[in-house]
Design a protein around this nucleic acid. Structure first.
Lengths: 127, 127
DNA sequence: TCTCTGTTTAGACATATGTCAAGACAAGGT
DNA sequence: ACCTTGTCTTGACATATGTCTAAACAGAGA
């Protein structure tokens, strides 16, 4: 099978620069939407949004699962499941060091999502 | 799981100023997460992300359903359902003018979501 | 090696979600 | 009035999601 396609990702989640112009500036192509929507979806749960925030705002840039779990009224497996979702969406990285597992935010993709939503005052125009 | 409705929004989606500090700056409180997560969730579907973009980037700031529907390989009811989701998340407004219904983006909430995801270069710090 | 603690995986279950076909509603034109 | 066209609602369905318990896995210490 010739899988010669996708030599260059349509959206590079690791790029430092915004991947694409703001959503309000030009129509997001289907391919880009297919790649970025899962990231928004991952943030679309209150628990995960808080987890993301706790990780991203943590001292030293990383948070231990042992600090995250007790912050919620949920079981360990449930928190683990949410963390996996964030991982699979490319929003965080996990690393085990000894007994504990540490999660760390990936600022690049956050920047890209923020860029997509950004509205330049000029374009926001009317109202 | 209780799907509680908020009687009075703790976050004013109409405010022009960002509702809250960036997610990476301080931990998002549960109440804020409960209100903003649905907006991210609404953007978490590729079709809705494209719809949002088409509406927000449309000439004149608004888009007719009649222009949106044919852009997808989906039935009218399905597009209508997605638009309703965007409406309920506070991302767009709808207005009927004669035969056609026009959708318009709400830049305030987009700004707030972008602000929440924003990363100041200083805070992104260590990596 | 055994055990203890921290984390993830595997199932199971109820609910939510995305989609469609069929029908209802809205506005204009005949 | 009637029909036509555009949009939304309803009801149905398969699949996805959030949560749990039970079990597996990973290290650290005894």
């Amino acid at each position: 099978m010739p899988k010669r396609q996708a030599p260059i990702p349509l959206v590079d989640l690791d790029a430092d620069a915004p991947c694409c112009p703001p959503l309000a500036q030009r129509r997001v192509p289907a391919e880009t939407a297919a790649i970025l929507a899962p990231a928004f979806k991952a943030l679309g749960d209150p628990v995960r949004l808080q987890l993301m925030s706790m990780i991203a705002s943590a001292d030293g840039g990383e948070a231990c699962v042992c600090d995250l779990t007790p912050a919620f009224d949920l079981t360990g497996p449930t928190i683990s499941h949410h963390l996996k979702t964030l991982r699979e969406a490319g929003l965080v990285d996990a690393e085990r060091r000894g007994t504990w597992v540490y999660y760390r935010a990936r600022p690049q993709i956050l920047r890209q999502l923020a860029g997509l939503l950004s509205i330049e005052p000029t374009a926001a125009a009317q109202r």
